[in-house]
Design a protein around this nucleic acid. Structure first.
Lengths: 242, 242
DNA sequence: CGAAAGATTGAATTTGGTCAAAACAAGTGG
DNA sequence: CCACTTGTTTTGACCAAATTCAATCTTTCG
């Protein structure tokens, strides 16, 4: 269950074992149909949809990365999820979108009308179940994030974040200890409920402690995975245990 | 959408207009079957299920209140939801429970095996859709809470919490400005990511400011709903707007 | 009633935020 | 190729909000 941490924007395909390649076998109806779906290309910073828009489609990221977030009138922002290639977006939307989705770089998505999705789900109960499970996984991820943000210290949050990215890499069969951050410090900060300064400081501290290496501020090398894992738990003496 | 704040543990019935009474008309299949389902009574502090248990049933609270939470090994706790009469519990569970459900007082629930739920959902596609929507609403609630905990100050969190309870009362046709807190300060604290002391202090401050009244520390009277709403937004000059 | 659990209040401490400046990186145009 | 601009990241000094620790007060319940 812990392995699920942050594993949000559930891919509807079964969670692939490490052996599966990026080009997953599209054996189910949804995958097939999406494969034939319209393609849309987004420039960096372009929005796929915004808070309040009518939820007309679901999407699957093909290339690039998308940041999903919500804003408060006064400018405070909560990043809810980062969608990687293979991830579905917009599954949970009912009526209007409750959040915005913005490309973090040039990004390609496949699109599919919600109406079509509904039809498919009706004709194939197994698909309906899959969707349900995908949503359920999103819920769990959201709660995991809630937990992290609510209960952990800054250091623990950053550690947990890095670990989650590691696991994501592993799951898609990439190098597990070298991760490229497609998001800015600002995105990380708004995801973890911190400021950019704190994120930066924390990363620097991890570097000085020899836990990670940071060359271009976009490339993180995990030197001591155990230390990181330890930190992500209450290992560094966390906070109020009441 | 904002009105959804904290409206978690979605009731599967349509969101009833304010006129609807507690004894909602059970027109759909699920309601009927649950109405005929087995009853289980829990004493205060008794668990309905625990983290890691196999998810065998879904439940609907009939009388009393249930607290849903997750724990870290070191004792830190995150309350994820409070379930009121009419609320469903366990909808999102896949395989094992990711959280624990504990009665906050003597509580009665109706139970229904997940297998039965699956069958029902297969025979009635509309029910499947309803379940999906219920889960989706839970997801939104989780994200709303995430937002609150992550971005708001202590005062704002408590204000938002009280307001959410107000709305809940309203929705079930109860007095909107007198709310009884079925949960302890500890529960509130673990829900909002604060300490009991901070919760207590914040409530005291609200009382001194004449925004609420607090007689038995369990009964909150909202004296200035607008002020509370204002606070819940960034009205009291919130935090880092970057 | 009296014990135990829960809630409040106060004082000291700490974490993380704010503000401000400097360092870097990437891209543009001369 | 270099100066120049712009945007992001890092670093430091200071400050405020929330936690910790500790003591007291209330409520609940046997």
């Amino acid at each position: 269950m812990l392995a699920m941490a942050f594993t949000t924007t559930a891919d509807v395909e079964d969670h692939a074992p490490a052996s599966a390649h990026n080009v997953a076998v599209e054996r189910d109806l949804l995958g097939e149909r999406l494969g034939r779906g319209a393609i849309r290309t987004l420039e960096a910073k372009e929005h796929l949809f915004c808070e309040g828009d009518v939820a007309s489609h679901v999407y699957r990221v093909e290339v690039g990365h998308i940041c999903i977030y919500r804003m408060m009138p006064d400018g405070r922002r909560q990043v809810v999820d980062f969608a990687y290639p293979g991830d579905m977006i917009g599954l949970g939307a009912l009526g209007d979108h409750a959040d915005s989705a913005q490309a973090m770089e040039r990004t390609i998505v496949r699109t599919m009308p919600i109406a079509t999705l509904r039809e498919l789900a009706q004709s194939d109960t197994r698909l309906g179940l899959k969707l349900y499970e995908a949503l359920s996984r999103e819920l769990m991820a959201a709660r995991e994030l809630l937990f992290t943000v609510s209960q952990r210290t800054a250091a623990e949050r950053v550690a947990a974040f890095l670990l989650a990215l590691c696991r994501r890499s592993e799951r898609r069969g990439e190098a597990a200890n070298e991760i490229v951050l497609p998001m800015t410090r600002m995105d990380i900060a708004d995801f973890l409920g911190l400021t950019i300064e704190t994120v930066s400081r924390t990363l620097t501290k991890l570097r000085h402690d020899g836990v990670i290496d940071l060359e271009q501020c976009i490339l993180v090398t995990i030197l001591k995975p155990e230390a990181l894992a330890q930190l992500a738990q209450g290992g560094g003496e966390g906070r109020h245990r009441n």
